[in-house]
């Protein structure tokens, strides 16, 4: 799970600035850049959070059981 989200984070984290730079250089249209950002910025946010979140394994429960 973490491996996949890390890969997604790196990928989307590269695509977002890359599309902005390419659009600034005139290599792609502005609309392509926006499409890339609309798709990959949310994925970047979510995958970043998923990467650095606390692990799902045994955690530190403040209180156990009723």
């Amino acid at each position: 799970m973490t491996g996949k989200t890390k890969a997604l984070m790196v990928l989307s984290g590269l695509i977002c600035p890359a599309s902005a730079i390419l659009a600034a250089a005139g290599a792609i249209d502005a609309i392509v850049m926006v499409a890339a950002l609309v798709i990959f910025f949310p994925l970047f946010v979510i995958s970043t959070f998923l990467t650095w979140k606390a692990s799902d394994h045994e955690g530190d429960y403040p209180f156990i059981g009723y």
């Binding site: 910025f41 949310p42 970043t48 650095w52």
Partner: peptide, 28 residues
């Protein structure tokens, strides 16, 4: 964002996650 996270068992799994992504996407 640092907290342990999972998807509730009763949720419609794909939609539960996708709706968050869509929410950010439309405002971008």
């Amino acid at each position: 964002s640092f907290k342990q996270t999972w998807i509730p068992m009763t949720a419609s799994q794909l939609m539960f996650v996708a709706i968050v992504v869509i929410m950010i996407a439309i405002w971008v």
